[in-house]
Simulated scan of single mutants.
Amino acid sequence: MSINIQLHKNDLPDDLNLGNIIAIDGEFMGLNVRRDPLCLIQISTGNSDAHIVQFDRENYNSPNLIKILNNEKITKIFHYGRADMAHIKYYLKTDTNNILDTKIASKLARSYSDNHSLKTLIKEFINIDISKQFQSSDFGGELSPSQLKYCANDVIYLHRIHDQLIKILIRENRIELYKNCLKFLKTRVELDLAFFKDDIWSH
């Protein structure tokens, strides 16, 4: 499958129309929000395209991207949005609104499996075996074609995967659980940023 990958420096173009349902993922220098900077945000409309924003980490001046992220009318599909949203809030200083999440959906829908990785979901629902070789690579400098392809693979399938997971959630009468988990996601991010990493519901 041919993927249209476009790399943008620091922000999305002024005249770019991505529609009302987009898939989003981020790349960081690690998983510690305060230590490991947000390097990239990639976005797909679900039509074999990927717009990758590489930030100027001196200022994170990205008004067009921020406008999309906090727009309540634009739906954003993540896979494990908890980490992405925390980095976005910390570095771009904005909330991410109107969220869907394929990892949360998978954990509720696919109780027949204990593997909810994106690679697994792409294999199960799209029947493509993607490489995760560059998952732990350096996204802070110049990006190789292989890194760009890896970033694109993280978003181009999310629309289709989410559609399939929703069918299971409806069939198994778990759709309301999913919706209620999504409502809590922003609070979970706030807890992470306040260093509450443990399960607050545990004894």
Score class of each variant (00 low, 15 high):
173 N>P: 03
186 K>A: 14
118 L>S: 08
133 Q>E: 12
114 D>F: 05
168 I>H: 08
154 D>S: 06
129 D>R: 01
158 L>P: 04
162 H>M: 15
112 Y>A: 07
143 L>G: 02
185 L>G: 11
139 F>V: 01
115 N>H: 05
184 F>L: 14
144 S>P: 03
155 V>N: 04
135 Q>E: 08
175 I>H: 11
155 V>A: 08
128 I>Y: 14
114 D>G: 00
148 L>F: 00
168 I>P: 05
143 L>T: 01
158 L>R: 07
143 L>V: 00
145 P>I: 03
148 L>K: 02
156 I>L: 02
112 Y>E: 15
142 E>L: 08
174 R>K: 15
183 K>L: 12
113 S>I: 03
125 F>L: 05
170 I>N: 15
108 L>Q: 06
134 F>N: 10
109 A>H: 03
129 D>S: 10
144 S>D: 02
128 I>Q: 10
129 D>G: 02
127 N>Q: 11
182 L>N: 11
120 T>E: 13
130 I>T: 06
175 I>F: 12
112 Y>N: 14
168 I>A: 02
111 S>K: 15
160 R>L: 05
127 N>P: 00
115 N>A: 05
169 L>N: 10
126 I>V: 13
133 Q>L: 10
138 D>K: 01
161 I>H: 06
128 I>C: 03
182 L>C: 07
181 C>G: 09
177 L>Y: 15
168 I>Y: 15
122 I>W: 00
165 L>C: 03
173 N>H: 15
144 S>L: 03
114 D>H: 10
165 L>R: 07
118 L>W: 01
176 E>A: 07
143 L>A: 02
181 C>I: 01
172 E>V: 13
105 A>W: 04
160 R>Q: 13
125 F>P: 01
108 L>C: 07
174 R>W: 09
121 L>N: 04
156 I>V: 14
117 S>V: 06
169 L>K: 13
128 I>M: 09
137 S>Q: 05
137 S>Y: 12
142 E>Y: 09
156 I>H: 00
105 A>N: 12
174 R>H: 08
134 F>Q: 06
161 I>W: 07
149 K>T: 09
161 I>F: 11
136 S>C: 07
113 S>A: 12
152 A>M: 02
184 F>G: 10
131 S>E: 04
171 R>A: 14
170 I>Y: 11
127 N>S: 12
173 N>V: 08
178 Y>V: 05
164 Q>A: 13
167 K>E: 15
144 S>F: 05
111 S>M: 13
126 I>E: 11
144 S>E: 02
161 I>E: 04
149 K>E: 09
172 E>N: 15
131 S>N: 06
148 L>E: 04
146 S>M: 08
181 C>N: 15
160 R>H: 08
127 N>L: 06
144 S>R: 02
